[in-house]
């Protein structure tokens, strides 16, 4: 084989690849079709992708992953997706397992699984982790950085746009993160205690220096007993906490029974309000979006404990 022939072959290949690239750039003018499971994730994908992505969340902003059921149309939505983004860490239950296996066939991205295990909170001995990563805004940003790389890998031609928009989105996350840090630090030390029915706020507590106390364990199939009520009541009474909170995905009566017991024992404590845990507010309201939802939680906590 002569040197001449090799260079000729190379030039043909080069020409072909440039042509192919040109054709692709034209064919891929349409925005990237992304399907997400939760609305929090959809918020972030939109934040990074802007006009260049077409985002569809399977679970609307007010929908809790526990309540969500796959509908007929969701099959087509999943099928038509060029990228599927989900939370992982068992938030989506069996659907998460299916999505994991779908990775063989089409691009899927699990935000939680992309994070280093050391940054996650373990909940059991079998390597399961708490899925509520979006309540630690720095961690959420790290998850976003991995997502950004994934989006760029899929659409290199939009890389600069993605990077610019991501920088702005991450800046908002950083700003809110700093505000939460500052606001929580401004609370009296004995009030930095978040009492809820079952803890969705472990990451929040770890990141912003609040102790988190729940009536029952992590499993939603579990129940609490009278001794657990007594334990939480003693903590609340001994710390002089001003308020406790309802979680949006747990029946309010669990916390209400704690309040009633405290009141009857002569240690009245206020109900601080409702915190969003696994879902957000209705679409079209500030709480229906990620930042609004986090701010609502922060505001509720501050109002109640200050």
């Amino acid at each position: 084989m002569t040197k001449n022939r090799v260079s000729r072959l190379l030039s043909v290949l080069l020409a072909l690849t440039s042509l192919w690239g040109f054709a692709c750039a034209h064919a891929e003018q349409a925005p990237l079709r992304v399907v997400t499971t939760t609305a929090m994730i959809a918020d972030m994908v939109t934040g990074i992708g802007g006009e260049r992505v077409e985002v569809r969340a399977l679970m609307g902003s007010g929908v809790d992953p526990h309540v969500y059921r796959v509908s007929f149309g969701d099959i087509q939505r999943l099928n038509g997706a060029e990228l599927i983004v989900y939370n992982g860490l068992h938030l989506e239950g069996r659907m998460g397992q299916v999505l994991e296996r779908m990775a063989r066939k089409r691009p899927v991205h699990a935000l939680g699984e992309a994070l280093p295990a050391a940054r996650l909170i373990a909940v059991d001995d079998a390597g399961a982790h708490d899925p509520h990563i979006w309540f630690d805004l720095r961690l959420w940003r790290e998850a976003g950085e991995a997502l950004l790389e994934r989006l760029i890998a899929l659409r290199p031609e939009d890389a600069s746009l993605f990077r610019t928009r991501a920088a702005a989105y991450f800046a908002r996350l950083d700003a809110l993160d700093a505000r939460i840090r500052q606001d929580i630090a401004s609370l009296p030390e004995n009030q930095r205690l978040l009492v809820t029915a079952h803890d969705a706020f472990a990451y929040f507590g770890r990141a912003y220096g609040m102790e988190v106390v729940g009536l029952q364990g992590i499993s939603t199939a579990s129940e609490f007993g009278l001794a657990d009520l007594r334990r939480v009541r003693q903590i609340v009474a001994s710390r002089g906490v001003k308020a406790v909170f309802i979680e949006s995905s747990v029946p309010p009566r669990f916390i209400e029974s704690l309040l009633a017991g405290l009141e009857s024992a002569g240690q009245p404590v206020r109900l601080g309000g409702e915190l969003f845990s696994d879902s957000m507010g209705p679409a079209g309201t500030p709480e229906g979006q990620y930042f609004g939802m986090v701010e609502h939680n922060l505001h509720t906590i501050l109002e109640a404990l200050q």
Binding site: H66, R69, V70, S71, F72, D74, I75, L78, H90, G93, R94, M95, Q97, V98, L99, R101, M102, K105, V123, D124, D125, A126, A128, Q216, G217, I218, S219, T220, A221, S222, E223, F224, G225
Partner: peptide, 26 residues
């Protein structure tokens, strides 16, 4: 489950019950 509260997160909806609509993807 309650007795092993720190180690177990089992819910039949999450670990056992499948979803017909998702079967083709698995």
């Amino acid at each position: 489950i309650a007795g092993h509260a720190d180690q177990v997160d089992i819910d039949p909806d999450c670990v056992l019950h499948g979803e017909l609509a998702l079967t083709p993807f698995d």
